[in-house]
Design a protein around this nucleic acid. Sequence first.
DNA 1: CCTAGCCATGCTGAT
DNA 2: CATGGCTAGG
Length: 822
Amino acid sequence: MDRFAAHDADRSPPPEPGLPHEELNEPQARAASHAAGPLLIFAGAGSGKTRVIVYRIANLIVTHRVPPYRILAVTFTNKAATEMKRRLEGLIGADIVKDLWVGTFHAVCARLLRRHHEAAGLDKNFIIYDDDDQRAVMNRVLKELNLDDRRYPPRQVLSRIHAEKQEGRGPAEFERKGYFDDAIARCFEAYERHLKAASAVDFDDLLLSVLRIAEDPTSFAGEDLRGRFRHVLVDEFQDVNQVQYRLVRAFCKSHDNLCVVGDDDQSIYRWRGADVRIVRGFRRDFPHATVVKLEQNYRSIGHVVRGALGVIRHASDREPKELWTANQDGTPIDVVAADSEHDEAAWVVEGVRELIAQGVSPNEIAVFYRIHAQSRVLEEVLREARIPYQIIGGTRFFERAEVKNLLSYLRVIANPKSDVDLNRIINVPARKIGQSTVDKLIQAADLLGVSLFEAIDPILEGRVPPSAMPGGQLPPLAPAAKRSLLGFRDLILGLMTEAKSASPSALAEEVLARSGYAKALEQEDSVESEARLQNLRELVQSLVDYEQEAIAAGDEATLAGYLERVSLVSDVDALADVPKVAMMTIHAAKGLEFHAVFLTGMEEDLFPFRSQDPNRKGDIEEERRLAYVAITRARERLWITHAARRAIFGQTRYGLPSRFLADLPPASVRPIATPASMMAQRRVEGGFGGGGGYAASGLRFGGQERSWEGRERRPGAQAQGEERFAGARFSREGEPARGAMGRSMDVPDRAPGERYVEREAVDPGAEGGEGLALRRGMRVYHERFGPGVVESVDPGADPIATVKFSGWGKKRIKVAFLRAGP
DNA sequence: CCTAGCCATGCTGAT
DNA sequence: CATGGCTAGG
């Protein structure tokens, strides 16, 4: 029995007779046994969709006798693919599973493209260019076209091209909208030309090339692609883009055995071309589709499920569905007010330490953040506390310079046309081939219309036609430069010969030895160079691992195969099954689950994220879905933290608690303030002229239990800690019941930081002051609008403050209605 | 030709 | 804050 099932044994769905090994509930079983035709599965978070897909595939093979190599299952990450295969092996055996097509769109397309490389005009050993490589190509393109890279920043040009390709358009279909686009169009054309010349593809091409073949009605390759699969399953369907959808439809051309599984509430990749309309329009495209909804959550405790629902309920335009759970309520969600990001990190570490002390395995604990930049502080504190952790993403192993260098050597050996790679290593280690020499080489290559590598011989022999040079001869190379270039050429040629017989790992060793790279690093003898050597050894080891895996799977271990794999690894793929706390962005957390989750940085402008660049408009709806994804990762415990101030991007920001916090049902939340946060609060309080400010503000100690509408009624089983704060509730005299005011009914009844208020400030009998001494920047709290920051104050007998509220914007409020906020 | 150090500039999310 | 591009000096 697998880990998932073992862990959740106490809350597994009821057994279904006739379905061995796995137990499925009614809708799950319906989806799993659906034999043919289109099938749309709306799978809520934690509703056991992986289980359904796995069982469905097993069913197709065992019951319906579909040959495994006729089944394609597309997953979102390689890790998910591996996990799926692992679970299938338990059901139908490894022998059958190895013939299945299971993988990400990119991995599947890379494999198909290897087979049909000719139809795409590529060498068999084509190379996949990553972002860095793409930028290098674009830099060269801009230079070639004499375009100012300040006016046309490579990244922006690329992102424009990327957007086009994601919609399935090439340079020919590019629509010019103004004169700026003229240049973009030329860049697009030149960029494509360079990639093709290098026999390289970018991530978009991987899909696009296969799509073009698959949609070509005339070619043999296209026929093969359209007839290859009899059943296609796509997981995380809410995050597919147009190209991927067209691809899937092409694969299903001769039948419509298409099973898609998704949850529009978890669509978080719109920014990279994912189109929720595809999942929402599926029934229009396939009117006879069977639709199954999985709405029972088996993963999380009741408080977590209700917290997630509170957030997603306010999403506009979602497929009607109601997630529910039979699980126990468990512990409420802790919403923690911290003073700073350091304070926040300290709280997280303390919580992690406690969990581990209680016997929770570190790999069942995760720390989430909105952006990678938040990880550093958390990492430092964890390291200090000697808690083992692993960071997913950020600066990755394969992005380190020395690793990329060795990979570039290997890529040049596999595909000498790859100019980006050649350029990268031509002077690594330093071998006296400087920029001027490389520039001449590039010129020669451009003139001859060949790759950099192919231009070496002509330039050494002076065979570059002078007539082609505008304004004279190509400046001659210095003898020293010639010698160096010759040495480099021979090095590569020698390694190419070696590659014919040696294994990939042996070849890598050979590269390190013959190039002198290892020696150069050894001689440097610094802490950094030692670390680099270590990384290179690790890379060689990963080649060895690859070879062993290939042998075990009965495949041939090829250099191209390895290079393809490293190009397509995703961040989460690196998530190892080791006892370490996992740290990652919420995007990376999609599809994962943990016993305990710390969701950090829950502040306005950070989450929901808002770019400082006013041209880039954020998408609040997507941020909301992201929050939903984050919350639903937790099985038993969830802490959500926010900090009053945070140093990020080189400056200190004073943030408001995220608007999403206000959407958590109060009954499922336990507000907590860190000691440092309470201290800071005390300082703010001082500015209010003492504890009497509350009485003066018209707020009254309420102590009265407020009621909620519908399902959100306070559960009978109160969690401990709830009592501690039970008396600390405020209500303003004469204020209408909040339940009548739409979303404000879910505003937490206690603002973060209120614990201090309870202990120190609430004294109904205290004398009133002369109103609040508000200053700009001060944090206040309003009964209806929640926490806010004072922008300005109009003094007078009845002073009015302009206050910015998270989620509400600026409001002019009588000071009398404000009190000290979080 | 190489290297160190300076300045500037961007800075979400990722296969 | 971190990376990268550029300049000046070796």
